[in-house]
Computed example of a mutant assay.
Amino acid sequence: MARAQETFGKKEREKKRLKKREEKAKKKEQRKASGDQDSMFVYVDENGHLVDTPPDPSKKVKVDAESIVLGIPKKEESDEVIDPVRKGRVEFFNDSKGYGFIKDTETQEKFFVHVQGCLEEIKENNMVQFELERGMKGMNAVRVKKV
C-alpha cells in the first residue's frame, strides 16, 4: 500500500489554515472578554441610513401591510389605434442572397427583410410599405410591397 504523499505546498497550506483558525478564535475570545456587545449592533434610522444608536420610537411610522402592492400593475389600454403598416426605404437588398434592410421613415430604425416576406420584387432605394413581425434575432419586415 502506498503512503499518501505530503508535499511542501500541502504542508504550507495546512499551516496557513491552522494559523487563520487560531487568529479567529483569539479575536472571538477578545470580543467575549471585552463585553462590548453594543458596538456589534447596527441600526437603521428613519431615513434608511445605518447608525450605531437605537432609533427614536417617536419617529416610528406604522405601515399597513395590506396597502403594499406586489407585482406589476395592469397595463391600461390606450384609445389610440396604432397602424401596423409602416413606411420605409430599402437601404440595402441583395438579390442573389435574398435579403436586405429597410429603414423606417418615422423612427429611422432598420429592419431585416427576407425575399419570402416580400409581396412584390423590391430593389434598393424603393419606397415600401411593410409590417413588423418578431424574428429569431429581432424584428423582421414582412408583407413588403412598393408604394
Results as ranks from 00 to 15, higher is better:
Pro55Val: 09
Gly98Ala: 13
Glu23Phe: 07
Ser67Arg: 05
Gln37Ser: 09
Lys26Pro: 07
Asn94Gln: 14
Gly71Leu: 11
Cys118Leu: 08
Ser39Ala: 09
Lys59Trp: 00
Lys24Cys: 00
Glu109Pro: 00
Arg21Ser: 14
Glu77Arg: 01
Ser78Gly: 11
Asp38Val: 06
Lys74Pro: 10
Val69Gln: 15
Gly117Phe: 06
Glu120Ile: 09
Asp52Ser: 05
Arg86Trp: 02
Gly88Asn: 01
His114Tyr: 04
Gln30His: 12
Asp56Ile: 10
Lys62Tyr: 14
Phe92Ile: 07
Asp104Ile: 01
Lys32Ile: 14
Ile102Asn: 11
Pro84His: 04
Lys87Trp: 01
Gly35Gln: 00
Glu23Ile: 08
His114Glu: 13
Glu109Ile: 06
Val61Trp: 12
Lys110Ile: 04
Gly35Leu: 08
Ile68Ala: 02
Ser58Arg: 07
Lys32Glu: 15
Ser96Thr: 13
Lys62Leu: 13
Val113Asp: 06
Asn47Lys: 11
Ser96Ile: 15
Gln116Asn: 10
Phe111Thr: 06
Gly88Thr: 08
Ile122Trp: 11
Ile122Thr: 00
Asp36Asn: 12
Gly117His: 10
Phe93Cys: 14
Val85Phe: 02
Glu109Phe: 07
Gln116Ala: 14
Glu46Cys: 04
Glu121Leu: 06
Gly98Arg: 06
Val115Ile: 14
Asn126Trp: 05
Val115Cys: 09
Gly88Met: 13
Val81Ala: 02
Ala33Phe: 02
Val115Pro: 03
Val42Asn: 07
Glu109Gln: 14
Lys123Met: 08
Asn94Thr: 01
Thr107Arg: 04
Pro57Cys: 02
Phe101Lys: 04
Glu121Pro: 13
Ser34Gln: 05
Gln116Phe: 05
Gln116Asp: 12
Ile72Val: 12
Arg21Pro: 01
Ile102Arg: 08
Glu76His: 11
Glu120Lys: 05
Asp45Pro: 11
Ile68Phe: 09
Lys110Asn: 15
Glu80Gly: 11
Glu23Arg: 13
Lys20Ala: 12
Val113Ile: 12
Asn126Ala: 03
Lys24Asp: 02
Lys26Leu: 10
Lys75His: 15
Val85Gly: 01
Phe41Val: 10
Gly35Asp: 11
Ala33Met: 08
Phe101Trp: 13
Ile82Val: 14
Val115Phe: 07
Arg31Ala: 06
Ala65Val: 13
